[in-house]
Structure formats: structure tokens, C-alpha cells
Design a binder for these strands. Sequence first.
DNA 1: ACCCTCACG
DNA 2: GACGTACGTGAGGGTA
Length: 932
Amino acid sequence: MSQNQSANHLYLVDGSGYIFRAYHQLPPLTNQHGQPVGAVYGYTTMLWKLATELGNADGPTHLAVVLDKGSHTFRNDMYDLYKANRPPAPEDLVPQFPMIRDATRAFSLPCIEEDGFEADDIIATYTKAAVAQGWKVTIVSSDKDLMQLIQPGVDMYDTMKNERRGADYVMGKFGVRPEQLGDVLALMGDSVDNVPGVPGIGPKTAAKLITEYGSLEAALDAAPSMKKSKMQENLIAHADMARLSRKLVTLHDGMDLPEPLDHLTLKGIPPEPLQAFLSHHGFKSLLARLGAPAAAVAVAAAAAAISENTLPPAPRAEEDPPIDRSLYETVVTQDALDRWIAAARAEGVVAVDTETDMLDCVSCALVGVSLATGPSRACYIPVGHQGQDMFAERPEQLPRDLVLARLKPLLEDDSVLKVGQNLKYDITVLRRHGIEIAPYDDTIVMSFDLDAGQSLAGHGMDEAAKVHLGHTCISFKDVAGTGKKQISFAEVPLDKATEYSAEDADVTLRLWKLFKTRIANEGATRIYELVDRPLVAVIAKMEHEGIKVDREALSRLSAEFTAGIAALEAEIHALAGQPFAIGSTQQLGAILFDKLGYKGGRKGKSGAYSTDVTILEQLKAQGAEIAGKVLDWRQLSKLKSTYTDALQAQINKDSIRVHTSYSLSGAQTGRLSSTDPNLQNIPIRTEVGRQIRHAFVAEPGNLILAADYSQIELRLAAHMADVPALKQAFANGEDIHAATAQQLFGEVNRDTRARAKTINFAILYGISRWGLASRLEITADEAQDMIVRYYERFPGISIYINETIEKARERGYTETLFGRKTWFPRIRAPIQHERQGAERAAINAPIQGTSADIIKRAMARIGPALAAEGLDQVKMLLQVHDELVFELPETDVERASPIIRRVMETAAEPLVKLSVPLGVEIGTGPSWGAAH
DNA sequence: ACCCTCACG
DNA sequence: GACGTACGTGAGGGTA
């Protein structure tokens, strides 16, 4: 290989692939002629970037832009469904295709397209030709099919991510070498291009098979002797599809070169045509870089400045001087530490924030603590920072245990208030080091109790700082980066860590001052002090406790579901007469309504077919067997992906338990919400789903105890709307839906009770005759009659509804019995359906919110009530809105049950005296499922 | 990133 | 006669 040849480097730009990606990732810009040019702009900047690499060591010496031409290729002759799922290009993208050619010409670059071949094949052909000449090749694309071409001397370049990709990348993403990728892609299939693949085989299984057997053919040959499984059956049954898929994903590299290689030489880019193109479309920033006249540069700069300053400056808290990060101190000596502790004692209030090496506070390690004692008077005490790489020296800092020993008396001192933002995190971290923070305030909870529902007020710190202090915080991303390059806080240099962490404490203290005054002035003291604040430590404890989940049981279920799913899939494909992605509502809609011709029209603004349960059930009733199968498939897929599989992954390595995270500011009404994982939506309504609940188990010798409020929202509605008939029924311990049926229909049977139940819930949610009509499958007029009759029999209800809406409109918010406010900015919206939506939510909020207040009070009281009886082995693990779940020694059940029941049933008192009794049902068993 | 669907109360 | 089908959530998969 001669020097001369090896210096050549051909860049092949996948123009068609790029434009689709640019279209979706960039905002829909238009030029001054009103033409959509978002994708063109993205494409132009990409070419620009490549042009600037001209002359770099690894830059292009030769370059061609490759485009798709026409839609019919030899692959369609092989498989008529190839790319059959592709929707037509979006309307505002179509006119941009010719502009792409204009842009390419403006850069004076060769553009290659060929009938009957896709861009991928042209790229493969040129790659082969260039490699044969000993050239280097870079394919500018992020298309996974093209990754098959990666080899020594050939790499790929993703300009959007600014990433060069070689064989390592393919290995990391697909688990195989590039030359094996075609086999993997064939097994996986591709729903976008409609490459069928083998059902039930995804990237993981495909990679496993190819790694194990070496090739697709070898895997197919070996299939009959593999361990019997659904996968193995599929592999045998769909071997032909796999072979067809293999051909479809194979890149065709044998075409004649439309242009010889040496015609692709880059000779430099003449500025005139480029300048004409850029100014035609008004791409000012690029024009400026091209060296356009100074005036144009000024215009571009001015335009940028305006767009960045459209938000009015937020008001700042009066009095307090603005945030000055230069005043923050990094504490590395004992004297300095003692000085800060003394300052905190002198103030009587201190903001505290802990920094850790990861977010999971069950396993994380403490990295540092920040304190704030006044405006811009804040410090950061590092205790666990490392150097930035393994060879760097660990920065000088005080020993962790010394710092904690010094801080402990302060953090536990009754006369010093500790303030934190989302304190449950810090409480957990410090508890693991033997520190029980008390007393405390939490600014996230304060913000929520003041402004729940206010669309402008986010309760997270960065947003709150912006809204209330007019200050932009340093974001975590700024100090630690994001994605793959994200570093742990322990690796952040001390000066940056101090700026970030001390600012958090500084901001927290400023917010606290503001909120403290507002809580007193705006009547939020009761809800904050008596309901939400005490809960923070209780929630911290529950999260830390976690719940044991039987991994083997889940994995057995998962395997059962997988088998069921595969069987259903085969049946569905047979009924459809073709394979398709059942999970795709689009494809499913096309099969059901276009191909099979079932009735059940379009819905929604997107114009797409709706295929939800109600529709599928209608089809099933019409006799569409496929609809029932799809419903079953959906149920199993949901259970598998959301529960059996995801839950196993959530088991903590250290505790071997699952730790959810509760948000105290998640739900507008005051309810908690649960994330990572959500343990408030574990299945129970169907028998199949309920098996998942059985995997939530107690430790040996212990039991799970579940305590549910019975019909708490209906009871509260009866009390709040003052409905004598309902209150009487609850007082008598009657079946409330049966009692309603008696009142409405004059007789109680299964049908009338079910209807009464529907109506009872409809009332809680803000009834509309259309909604009720569709639920009960009656006409809107009949539904209207039923509502009228309900109002007649239960007269308080309509008064309650009208008064609630009226008050909400007047004051902007609703209130629970405990004074929790929920704001409804949209209740005065001029658009009717927005306003009506807000009205329905406003009807429900006081009821749902009061129920939330009551269970929160119960949660705060249960721990002390049990401890008073010496029952400190009883652990509260979960809250599911009207249910509390405990784990306790079998021997404690007898004594704990009545205490739990009493605390829950009397949780409203003495603050609120209810005119209906609250009922609690308790069950126990070895698992959560068995406790119901 | 957004929609759809579906799990719970 | 139109609203876009009830209140409150979070997660996963598909698609643009």
C-alpha cells in the first residue's frame, strides 16, 4: 500500500437517514419565504461541520452525499411487505427533500442516488471499492444497518452526538462483532422496515444465539437440538422468515459505481453559491461564520439576544442581597467547621444539604454536607471526595467520622431548626450514620402546601429558585455532566462542588424564609404542621425499610407469561393472516380495520385508530376472535414488562428488598405518589395479575398485614355533602352500593347494584351524562334522568357540587377538611372543555384530598402508638392511598391489629369530627396477596 | 419527546 | 349542539 493511497479518506454521508433524524430532533423552523426548513437547517449544519474537518488529520479527502431515490427496490421484489409499514413522510418534510439537493450543491459536493437501490447499498458499494484501494472510509450516519460495514479502516460518525463508532460500539450495543450484525438483525427483525425476524426474539436473545452458534445458519441448524422452549419452537417454525430477513438486511455491494472514486475528491468549497443558499433561507448564524457583512452578524446577534430574553425577570425576595457564590467557603479544617456550627446555633436555624455518590440512598455513601446560616453565608464540608482519576491525589478534607460526630449534636439539637429541600433523602443518609435530624422543615413540602396546582410554581429547587428568587441555580448536569460521561459527585473538584452544594443550602434557606411567612399568612399552618411535615420522617423510614420480593416467584411467572405471549402471538398472526407488531397500535389498527374490515372508526386528533380495551371488547362482542386474543396478549405483556421483569431489576443489591420512592408533592390533591418502582399500582383486579402480589412476602417468622379503609371517599362525600340517606347507611354498616341501588331503582340485584356502584363513583369524579351513559351503555338522556334521580334522593350532592365549583371559581382553589388547598387556574379558562375539566377535578379534589390527609395523619401516629405498647418490631412498609401494608412478627399480630385499626379509624380526630364512621378492614398472610 | 395503553386507588 | 368522554397517578412500548 503506497503512502499516497493510504492518505485518502472517503466520507460517505447518509443524507436520507440524516434528514429524517434532523426533522424529528429540531424545532419546525420556517424561512422568510414561509417554507419549512428545520431539517434542511440541520442538514446544512452537519455538512458545515464536515467541511470544517477538511484538512484535519482524520478529515475527508473525498466525500459523497448519498440519497435514496424512488421507493421500489430489489428488496420489494423479495418481500412485498418490505417497508410496508412506513408511513408517508410528514407533510412539512416532503418539500424539504429537493432542498437537501440544493444544500448539497451549495457546498459543491457530489450527490449520488441510483434507481432500484437504497442509499445503504450505494454506501456499501463505495465502501467496498474504497477499501479495495486501501482508503480509509467514514460513514456519516447512525443507522444500525450500516454498522455491518464497520471493519478495520472503516468507521462511522454520528455528527449529532459527535461520536465516532467502531467495532467496540457495535459490540457494546449488540453484543457481537460487526460482521455478525447482519445475522443478529435478521433474527431481531425491524418493525420500522417491516423486516419480520423471528417472533419473540429481540436484540438480547439474537446476540446470545449468534455468539453461541457463530452464525444464523448454524443457529437454525442447531434449533431442533436446543432445549425445548417457546423460543426454540419459534426458531424452527420461522426459519424461512429468518432466512428472508437475512437477505433483506444484507447490504448490496456489487452495483456499478455511478461515479468513479476519484471524482469524489474534495477541492475546497467556493463561498459564493453557499452564501446565496444561506441567505435565501436566512441561516444567519452560518452566514455570520462565513464572514458575511458586519450588519448581518449584528442582526443575527440581536435576534439571538431577543429570543433568550423573552421571559420577564422574576421578582427577588426583598431585603436579602442577591446570591453571591464567591462568599461560599470550603470547610477543610476543624476550626472552620466549629465556626460554622457555632454560627448555626447562634441563628437557631440552618439549611442542610447532603451530597452522595449516587442517588439510591440505601446504598449510597456520603460525599459532603453543606450548611447555610444566612443569605450567601454558606459552606461545603467535603468528606468523601476522590481525585478526578485513580492516579490523582485525594483532595485534602476532614475525616468523615469527625465531621459527623461534630454535626450530630447540632442536627439533633431541639433548639436549632434544620431546613432541607426534599429532606427525606438527607434524613435517610444521615440516619445510616446514626444521626436523627430534628426538628426540621422541608421546603419542598412547604411549597406544595402553599401552591399545589399552581401551574407556575414547580416545587423542585431549581424551579422554585427561578420562580421565587429569580435565580438560576447551577444544575447538577453542569457539575457532573450527563449520560455516559456523568461522573459521581465524589469526583467533582472541591471548588465546583462547593459552588453547587453551598448554593443549594443558600437557596433552601432563602426559600424557607419566604415560605415560612407565607404559610402563616395564607392559612397553611394546619395542613403543614399537622399533616405533611410530620410525614417526612415517616416516609423516609418506609422507603429505607423496603419490602421483600420473591425473585424466584417473579421469574417463574415471567416464564409463564412469556410462553403465553408467544402462543397468543402465533394465534393472532394466524388470524391476521400475516405477522405484525401487536404492540403497535398503528399496525394493529391497520390490521383490524383496514385489512380485516371490522367496524370501529377513527378517533383522536392524530387521526389514528383507537384500539383500547373498550374498542377491543366491542369487537370481541361482534365476534372478532382476534380482539379477545389481543386483549389477552396485552394483559400478559403488561404484566411481564411492567411487573415481573421490571420488579426483579429493582431489587436492591445490598438490602435484597425493593425500595420505592414516595413523592410528597406528586399529586395535586395531596396524595402521595410512588416511583422507581411504582408500588401503588401492583395488580389485584384480575386473578392472573394478583399472582404478582403474592410475590411480595414477609421474612420467615413474620407476616404481612394489610389494613384498608373501606369506601373512605364515599364516606367522606356523605359527610362533606351532608347526605342523610348515605350517612345513615354507613352508620348502619350497610352495603353502600346496595343501599344506593335500593334508593335509585327500588330493588337490589346484581345488575342494579353494579349500576349504583358506577354512579357512586361517577359522583366522586364529577359526573357528566355522556360519561355515565357510555359506562352504563345507556343513552345520554337516560343517564341524565338517572343523575336527576340521584340528586333527588341524595339532595346534599348537587348543592355540594355547585358550591365547590362556585368557591373554586371565586377563590381559585378548593380546600380539604384539613385546609389543604389545591389551586385550579383553569377553572376560569375561556375554553369550555378546559374549564369543565377543571371543574370536575375541583369536585373531586376535596374528597380525594381529605382522604389523603386522613391516612397521612394515621401514618404519622401509628409508629408512636405501636412503640408505646412495645411493638417496635412492626414495620410500616407501603401506602396505597387507602391502604397501609406492614410486616410484623407473627406473634405481634394479635396485639398490633387493634392498635392499627384504632389509629386509622380515629385519624381525623380531634382536628375534624366526622359524621360518618371510618371503617378499616385488616387481613394478614405470608404475602401481600394473601393478606387481602 | 410524545402518545397510547393499562396497572392501581 | 358541541365537548371528547369521569378524578388522581407512573411505567413501558411504539413512533416520529
